[in-house]
Computed example of a mutant assay.
Amino acid sequence: MRRLLNTLYVTLPDVYLACDGENVLIKVNDEIKFRVPVHNLEGIVCFGFAGASPRLMHLCCERGVAISFLSQYGKFMGRITGNVSGNVLLRRTQYRWSDDEIVTTRLSRRFIAAKIMNSRAVLHRVLRDHTEVVDNEALERALQLLARMPAKLEMAHHGDSIRGIEGEAAHLYFSNFNQLVLNQKEAFRMLGRNRRPPTDRVNALLSFLYTLLTHEVVAALESVGLDPQVGFLHRDRPGRPSLALDVMEELRPHFVDRLAVTLINRNQITAKGFVVKENGAVIMDDDTRKEVLTAWQKRKQEEITHPYLEEKIPLGLVPYVQAMLLARHMRGDLEDYPPFFWK
């Protein structure tokens, strides 16, 4: 089992990444602000326009530590990795399967069925725990409709139908998302799911966290030898990690949505931590981003019992487990792919 290591998130402005022997250095104006052994890292994520020395990039590539560069808004700009050591036969199977409509339809059903049921579990939890302050009728209706959708998925015979059902489920889920917010309700009112750019605080928070999850899933897929770019539900597009987006679907509600709601309801983040730009885009300030990143790292350390393995593992290992299960299915070791269902 892969050891759960740390991701180093670099958010300070005017930062330069360097190395000293086997140590990664964070420098500001030639002054060392932080030092960490490279063997303690699984990845480095830089927000803004941090520079990095060629020597550091070489060290990270040798040690299998990916360096990702994101804009201050959380938009992915690029990624540096070492040699790909994936099994060529596994990747050939992946490419063949991506062109097979029967296979892509079957796997797409798995990803979206898990997403829908995990979304339903999030809504069911708030209804169970806070029945006195939520709209019981609206939530119960949403739960009933979501419960019927996996059966509709089994009747879908191509990707467009599955994407249509996923869109219907997402609209229903996010239409009730404001009920999950129990504190700071006016400041964190969601105006429907929107992005590129997000135009309210909840969407800004969700988009940022989804970006972090994307980084985790891409790394997980590469670690088992799969190509993150070639998916089944999300079709090929230059620069799009389609397979990572496929696997992310089942993880979004439990990994991201619950964390976002917790941060708001516990007042760990407030409206003051968000900035509205001239074009209407809403972004987090530096202090709020650090608070979210700290919570994300703590979230990854929480232990759960994996529903398929029936073993206790840190939540941060779930993307790696799902990537491993998908690879085992492609190699013929598993009859079908078991998606992640949160119980």
Rank of each mutant, 00 (worst) to 15 (best):
R120D: 08
H58Q: 15
L41Y: 03
A66R: 12
F47R: 06
G43D: 14
L107C: 10
V65A: 02
V126L: 02
E101Q: 04
G64S: 09
S53Q: 06
D100M: 12
L89V: 07
D30A: 08
T105H: 02
F76V: 09
V45Q: 05
R110K: 08
N23Q: 15
I116T: 08
R55D: 04
R125D: 08
D30L: 07
S68N: 05
V122S: 05
F76H: 15
F76M: 11
I80H: 14
R63T: 14
N23S: 13
G21K: 14
L59N: 06
L89I: 01
K75F: 07
V24R: 09
G64E: 09
L107D: 15
R109P: 10
R96L: 14
E31N: 04
K27D: 01
Y95V: 15
I102S: 13
R91Q: 14
E42K: 04
P54W: 03
V28I: 10
F47I: 01
T104A: 07
H58P: 00
G51K: 05
V126W: 01
A66W: 02
F49T: 03
I112Y: 12
V103K: 03
S53P: 02
R106E: 09
R106I: 01
R96W: 13
R106H: 08
I116K: 04
G51W: 02
R92C: 08
L107P: 13
S71Y: 02
Y73R: 14
N23H: 12
V45F: 03
Q72T: 12
G86Y: 12
V122D: 00
L127N: 00
K33Y: 10
I32T: 06
G48Y: 02
L25P: 06
T81E: 01
S119V: 08
R35E: 15
H58G: 10
W97L: 13
S108E: 03
S98N: 11
K115L: 02
R96F: 15
A50I: 05
F34M: 06
K27N: 07
R55M: 01
L89E: 14
G78H: 03
L59S: 08
K27H: 05
I67Y: 10
R55Y: 01
V103L: 09
Y95R: 13
T104H: 01
F69C: 12
S85P: 00
S98P: 11
L70E: 02
I102Q: 14
F69Y: 10
S68Q: 03
T105N: 07
T105D: 07
V24Y: 01
R120N: 11
V38I: 09
G78D: 09
F34I: 05
H39V: 02
V24A: 11
I26A: 02
S119F: 08
L127W: 00
K33P: 02
G78C: 10
W97M: 14
E31K: 05
A121R: 15
